[in-house]
């Protein structure tokens, strides 16, 4: 255990000790009761809103601020937040070694792998699969720009059908190139940083991961994203998502940054404890 961590644990321990000693004195009432509820939301799913707009080159214009789910904006309503039907989607089929590795993971491992605990970018394809924050698309002929509220990340994808960089460096969004197949924008991504996970329960990936994102705007107010993941080292067969639904918002993005990340040290300490003690 290094000196800084030792000091941290002492400080946390002292604080917890103070809390424990004071616990019996608190004027706390109703502990364990069910919380009061706000008035029921009258929000309804956004209407289709007519046909999707098109850019000068004739392709659907995907531009807009998009919120996950069908509310057409921020909502606490779980039914409107839902982006896909989990029952209709086949779970990823892992290679035996990968399935065995995930099976050994504890809840603490899951937390340590979470982008929100590590303040890692969601990257590709997490930005479409595990991102509860809105993003903005700015599209011009030949270019797709995605601005993410989450950590103010962005990606710029050429949609002129060009080939991948022959020797790309790994990155969170990978090396990404786009082309149109009818009214579908297809973004092909390789060379993705191996630190990201594709879900919150251990779906890690290899350097061979290949992601294909298919983005459509079936109507003015709706955006659908279908993600295919090939990863011959980790997956037994390619996985394809059901469509993830986003709806058009009518407001600007705000600022969101993952900061104040000292808590990851708590999880590391907890992991050490679970692993049978303090590893020197």
């Amino acid at each position: 255990m290094n000196g800084r961590l030792a000091y941290y644990l002492v400080a946390v321990g002292a604080a917890l000790g103070t809390l424990c000693m004071a616990a019996g004195l608190a004027a706390q009432e109703g502990n364990g009761s069910q919380p009061a509820q706000p008035a029921k939301s009258k929000q309804q799913p956004a209407p289709k809103g007519g046909p999707a707009p098109r850019t000068a080159d004739g392709h659907p214009d995907l531009s807009g601020v998009w919120f996950g789910g069908t509310a057409g904006g921020f909502t606490y309503n779980p039914a409107l937040r839902r982006q896909f039907d989990a029952k209709a989607e086949e779970p990823p089929q892992f290679q035996p070694w990968a399935a065995a590795k995930i099976k050994t993971m504890t809840q603490t491992d899951f937390e340590l792998g979470r982008a929100s605990v590590n303040c890692l970018p969601r990257g590709v394809p997490g930005m479409f699969l595990i991102n509860p924050y809105p993003f903005q698309i700015v599209q011009t002929p030949g270019l797709f720009v995605q601005l993410d509220e989450l950590n103010n990340n962005f990606r710029v994808v050429h949609t002129d059908g060009r080939a991948h960089d022959p020797d790309p460096d790994p990155s969170f969004d990978g090396d990404e190139v786009g082309h149109w197949e009818g009214d579908t924008l297809v973004i092909d991504v390789i060379s993705i940083d191996e630190r990201t996970w594709n879900n919150f329960t251990g779906w890690f990936h290899s350097d061979q991961e290949h992601v294909i994102e298919r983005i459509t705007r079936p109507s003015m107010n709706y955006l659908n994203v279908v993600v295919t993941i090939e990863d011959p080292k980790v997956l037994a067969k390619p996985w394809t998502s059901t469509p993830r639904v986003w709806t058009l918002g009518h407001e600007d993005l705000l600022e969101y940054y993952c900061t104040n990340n000292q808590e990851v040290e708590q999880y590391k300490a907890l992991k050490e404890k679970e692993s049978g003690g303090d590893k020197k």
Binding site: V12, E111, V117, C119, E263, Y267, L270
Partner: peptide
């Protein structure tokens, strides 16, 4: 003292609120 406390109290992150808080139980002060 701190390590003794740590051995009995699981530490949870402030960042992942689903892990830190129990949405089925509330209190009022």
């Amino acid at each position: 003292m701190a390590l003794a406390l740590l051995s009995s109290i699981p530490l949870l992150a402030h960042h992942s609120v689903t892990a830190e808080f129990d949405s089925s139980k509330s209190f009022t002060v």
